[in-house]
C-alpha cells in the first residue's frame, strides 16, 4: 500500500461523503445524475463479488462494504428528493455505457468466467459512469459548489491511482493492463472537467485572497 493509493481511496471516500452531505442538507437531488449514481451501484456490486471468496485485508473489506452500502444509500436519497415536476437534465442514454462496458469486458478479461468478466465490466463501466453527471452539469450551467467538489474528489481518486500503478510497476515489477488502461480512460474522461474546475474554483479562491 503506497501513499498514492491511500490518498486516492481517501479522496474517493470524501467524494461520497460530500455527495451525501450535499443531498441531505439541501434535501434536493437537483444537479445530481441518478443514472451516474445507479451505475456506481452496478460498478461496486459487480466488482466486489470477491467479498465472498477472497480476503485481502480488513481495510479492503470495510472499504468495499462502505462503497456498496453508500452507493445504494445515495440512490435511495436521490429517489426520495427527486421532484417529478422538475425538468430533468439527466438525459444521457446510459445503456450505451453499460453495453460498451460489457463488450469491452467480453474482449478484455483475465479469464472467461462470470466473476472475471464482471470484474472487467465494472472497471470499464466505472471509467465512463461519470458521463451522465457531466452532461447534467453542462446542461444546468451553474452548478452547486458542492457538486463540483464532489466530481473533483471522485476524479482525483482514479487520477491518483495512476502514480500508484507506476510506483507498483517499479517496486513490484507487475502491471494490471485492464485496470491501468481503463483507469487512464477514466482520467481522460475527467480531463475537461478538471480544466474547468481549475479555471473556475482554484482561480476564484486565489482571487479572493488579499
Amino acid at each position: 500500500m503506497n501513499i498514492f493509493r491511500i490518498l486516492g481511496d481517501i479522496s474517493h471516500l470524501i467524494s461520497i461523503l460530500i455527495l451525501i452531505h450535499a443531498v441531505s442538507t439541501t434535501k434536493s437531488a437537483q444537479g445530481i445524475s441518478l443514472k451516474t449514481q445507479a451505475a456506481y451501484v452496478v460498478v461496486f456490486v459487480s466488482r466486489y463479488l470477491d467479498l465472498f471468496f477472497r480476503y485481502v485485508s480488513l481495510y479492503n473489506t470495510l472499504m468495499k462494504l462502505f462503497f456498496i452500502v453508500s452507493s445504494i444509500y445515495v440512490v435511495f436519497l436521490l429517489n426520495r428528493y427527486k421532484k417529478n415536476s422538475e425538468k430533468t437534465n439527466d438525459i444521457f442514454p446510459v445503456w450505451y455505457l453499460f453495453g460498451g462496458a460489457f463488450v469491452f469486458a467480453l474482449i478484455f478479461n483475465y479469464e472467461f468466467s462470470i466473476v472475471e468478466i464482471l470484474w472487467s465490466f465494472s472497471l470499464w463501466l466505472e471509467s465512463v459512469a461519470i458521463i451522465p453527471q457531466l452532461v447534467v452539469l453542462q446542461r444546468t450551467g451553474e452548478a452547486q459548489l458542492l457538486t463540483t467538489h464532489y466530481i473533483f474528489a471522485l476524479g482525483l481518486y482514479r487520477a491518483l491511482y495512476i502514480p500508484n500503478w507506476i510506483y507498483r510497476y517499479y517496486t513490484e515489477g507487475r502491471m494490471d493492463k485492464i485496470a491501468v488502461i481503463s483507469g487512464i480512460l477514466q482520467t481522460i474522461v475527467y480531463s475537461d472537467f478538471f480544466y474547468i474546475y481549475y479555471k473556475k474554483v482554484v482561480k476564484n479562491l486565489k482571487f479572493k485572497l488579499p
Binding site: 493509493r5 485485508s57 479492503n60 462503497f67 507487475r174 494490471d176 485492464i178 485496470a179
Partner: peptide, 10 residues
C-alpha cells in the same frame, strides 16, 4: 513485466 491483476485494490 508480469501481468498480474491488481485484485488487492479497490
Amino acid at each position: 513485466f508480469k501481468v498480474i491483476p491488481f485484485k488487492d485494490e479497490l
